[in-house]
Design a protein around this nucleic acid. Structure first.
Lengths: 243, 243
DNA sequence: AAACGTATGTGTATAAAATACACTTAGCAA
DNA sequence: TTGCTAAGTGTATTTTATACACATACGTTT
């Protein structure tokens, strides 16, 4: 279980609560042992170093399991951050020297993002001093994690325009309004309800169930599921080369 | 100039010769010092290890400069290959033990691809035992470089559908037929000439010059240039979330 | 000098996809 | 029973994609 001291793996864990796109973050605190003064109080994604003999993808799965308890989750490598100054901010150096003196100054981090149904993660939150934050209202972040999250969001926005990955953020059964909110929030755009539904109706992989929402104080919505199998069988290629 | 022994940078260098999309590769040869027998004869991309104190992007620029002599070239990080078995094939181990005994078994490589006007590269080819190969007819490759090139091509195909990067593969001045061939070859599709030209006509960043092809045995084509400035000022966003 | 070969350049009709837009309905709560 | 809320639905218009054939300019050959 020896760690590779100059390679880490970070995982931007995205969740969706029908209103916001959120990121799961862990608090980082450091108190001066003499004065008791709080010297660092911020959040990080708390990745891990890769282990000797471990594939990068496995390291990412390990990080995700560790923070959410979840396995077999959508996980995508999107970028590797390798600038020499990424850990050199004063407070980060203080943190590393205090807590991880064996870690080098130049650590490259292979970054993944994952999409989880956040209702499945809740139990772990309190246990680990870990909290969801809307990507639009991030707290103060350590290292270069703000940049990593920003870049992750850009890759997610691109990917969700082309691939049916939004469903990973929703419960297995969902309504079209939930799905539409998801796209609106992630892409930061407004969509027309009727046109959206027309578009979804063409997607054979979004399958209506004989089931309705329950316990809502309005007309109950129909419930849908996503089928990756159907998607793989019916997907089309698109050409664009942007005008 | 100390190297980082477990991190390398590979660069898939793409070029275009109006017929094929090519990759620049360097021969790798190993002869048995006793028998004189040729033990290894194949090609690799010949990346380099990152250097201590060097940003990853700078390492990639260095690799590109080293192989092509070119600077300020389109360069895009697309994936980091980190499987533990990527250098473990028998002949690769033989190569490493003979030539680079200080290199570890588990090296992760951050892969970039670059797009170059291959007419600018020629002078360097003979000097460095380096050759262009069509991506559709690759020679035997060392390490996991065949996989890396295949993945690079997938990323390139995606990117070129959305961003005006094809121009990087053409000379500054080009004809619409050249441009069309480029798209057809990279995307492996057939395009209708009239519809293609209609589409390009909408792109304000493809600018006709008062200049025609010379010395061709047919009606000379009009010459165009690409303007990134104009592109940045006029680009539109697209939405899709694939049907 | 005429004829030939070759790749360039061009327009229209049709189909498909994207967009804009307003009223009725089902359930729960008051 | 009334009111509140979000669900559900169709049509007309604009934009974009697709399919398709002949004349032109240049160099080469005869």
């Amino acid at each position: 279980m020896e760690i590779i001291s100059n390679i880490s793996v970070d995982c931007v864990i995205f969740g969706f609560d029908n209103t916001c796109l959120n990121v799961l973050l862990t608090k980082r605190e450091l108190t001066d042992p003499l004065t008791g003064e709080l010297m660092i109080e911020d959040y990080t994604m708390q990745g891990h170093h890769a282990l000797v003999g471990e594939n990068l993808d496995d390291a990412a799965k390990r990080v995700l399991k560790d923070k959410t308890g979840l396995e077999d989750i959508f996980l995508k490598q999107f970028y590797t951050f390798g600038d020499t100054d990424r850990l050199l901010k004063e407070k980060d150096q203080l943190w590393l020297k205090t807590k991880f003196p064996m870690v080098r100054n130049h650590v490259i981090t292979v970054a993944y993002y994952s999409l989880v149904d956040s209702s499945k993660v809740k139990p772990y939150q309190q246990y680990q001093n870990t909290k969801w934050f809307p990507v639009k209202m991030l707290p103060e972040l350590g290292f270069d994690h703000e940049k990593i999250i920003r870049v992750a969001l850009e890759y997610l926005q691109e990917e969700i325009r082309k691939e049916p990955i939004g469903f990973e953020l929703l419960p297995e059964k969902f309504t079209l309004t939930q799905l539409q909110n998801l796209y609106e929030v992630i892409l930061d755009i407004k969509l027309d309800r009727r046109n959206f539904r027309k578009k979804v109706a063409q997607m054979k992989h979004v399958i209506p169930l004989n089931e309705k929402q329950k316990g809502v104080a309005h007309k109950p919505a129909q419930v849908f599921i996503f089928s990756r199998d159907v998607y793989n069988r019916t997907k089309k290629e698109r050409l664009d080369f942007s005008v």
